[in-house]
């Protein structure tokens, strides 16, 4: 459960977010939509502690986490898969996972078991565990980035444009993976997407941003059915 209330962020003179409020429920996918520059990435970066807001706060299960360092927010169970995936190309697949499980105290055997569970979920990663992440395809890197966040067993998962640069078929596969994950683990997912169509298909709730402001916050079906939103803010014109 993530609560965002009255969040404002500026970079120098540019105000990236203005008074943004919404909440994301556990076991549900909340998608944040909007054009380039609407403030979607800034929103995620503020939640995970990379950016300090000028006003407002973020709460995790009722506790205020604004002002906490990014390194500590992730320890409290907020996993952030950044834009452009952020896998460390020079590391092997398994080293990337080891990095992801740093913050969880467990024995070597427990850690290996956790890796094996993920390899079961993402078989392609299991096959390439000794390969460097730089050799993976775009879709595989996205899988690795998600697996690396999941290995820390987060309660909240922030996904920034996971479909960016992926083929439609791969995107569809990815979306269904996210959907299953959310349904089976009770994870709170905040999914930032430019690809509104595929995001709305799997999301429960949708928040639409326009130049830093929330212009809609409703059930995904409602947003998907709203002609005005589709046309003006989401660029979905048939």
């Amino acid at each position: 459960m993530i609560g965002v209330s009255g969040l404002s962020v500026s970079y120098g003179a540019v105000q990236a977010l203005r008074d943004v409020s919404f909440s994301a429920a556990p076991g549900k996918i909340t998608t944040v939509l909007g054009a380039n520059g609407a403030g979607k990435t800034t929103l995620l970066r503020t939640i995970s502690g990379l950016v300090r807001p000028r006003a407002g706060e973020v709460t995790l299960e009722g506790d205020r986490i604004t002002g906490t360092h990014a390194e500590d927010i992730v320890r409290r169970g907020v996993g952030h898969v950044p834009e452009g995936r952020g896998v460390i190309a020079e590391f092997t697949v398994e080293e990337n996972l080891r990095l992801g499980s740093l913050i969880v105290r467990r024995s070597r055997a427990e850690r290996q078991a956790a890796f094996e569970r993920l390899y079961g979920q993402f078989p392609v990663l299991g096959e390439r565990r000794r390969q460097s992440a730089g050799t993976l395809s775009g879709g595989e890197r996205q899988m690795l980035a998600m697996a690396r966040a999941l290995v820390a067993e987060p309660r909240v998962l922030l996904l920034d444009e996971p479909s960016l640069g992926l083929a439609p078929l791969v995107t569809a596969e990815l979306m269904s993976t996210i959907s299953q994950l959310c349904a089976t683990t009770g994870l709170t997912v905040i999914l930032v997407e430019q690809n509104a169509k595929s995001a709305l298909r799997i999301a429960d709730q949708a928040v639409v941003l326009y130049i830093g402001r929330v212009v809609a916050d409703d059930r995904a079906e409602v947003v998907a059915a709203d002609e005005r939103l589709r046309q003006y803010y989401l660029g979905l014109v048939e």
Partner: peptide, 15 residues
């Protein structure tokens, strides 16, 4: 190594 290669991603993973 992670902090040297990609400081921001490292922070997001708790480094």
């Amino acid at each position: 190594r992670a902090a040297a290669l990609n400081p921001e991603v490292s922070r997001l993973l708790g480094v």
